[in-house]
């Protein structure tokens, strides 16, 4: 199965903050926290368009996300808003600091579920 390597950044988004206040089980929150942003160039290269589902996996776990094409992302980088889905992919090792590395995580993107 063909896969592509990316670095994953997780972080806040306005919608995620707002949707969390609507409720963690609201469709808005679930939708926003299962979104993966990808740069335009990478999306074209991979033949991805808004709303398509992709699988992301790494040594921690895997999850299904739907694509949102973003102007702001450079090639090779993915972005997922903070939430339970992003956390499937974040390693819990803290290097003795207490802080897991939530940004710049190695992930593989698979177009097939």
């Amino acid at each position: 199965m063909k896969s592509w390597k990316f670095l994953l950044i997780t972080g806040r988004s306005l919608k995620q903050g707002q949707a969390a206040e609507q409720g963690k089980f609201s469709p808005e929150y679930i939708n926003e926290t299962t979104t993966v942003e990808i740069g335009k160039e990478d999306a074209e290269k991979l033949g991805l368009s808004d709303g398509m589902e992709v699988k992301l996996k790494n040594t921690c776990g895997e999850g299904i996300f739907h694509v949102r094409i973003s102007q702001g992302l450079p090639s090779g980088i993915l972005f997922i808003p903070y939430g339970p889905s992003a956390n499937l992919l974040i390693p819990a090792e803290t290097g003795g600091t207490g802080m897991p590395g939530c940004k710049g995580i190695d992930v593989e993107l698979l177009k097939e579920r």
Partner: peptide
Amino acid sequence: SDPMASLPRQAS
């Protein structure tokens, strides 16, 4: 706080 949502799944 909501650690099940906000911590790495490996920990939570």
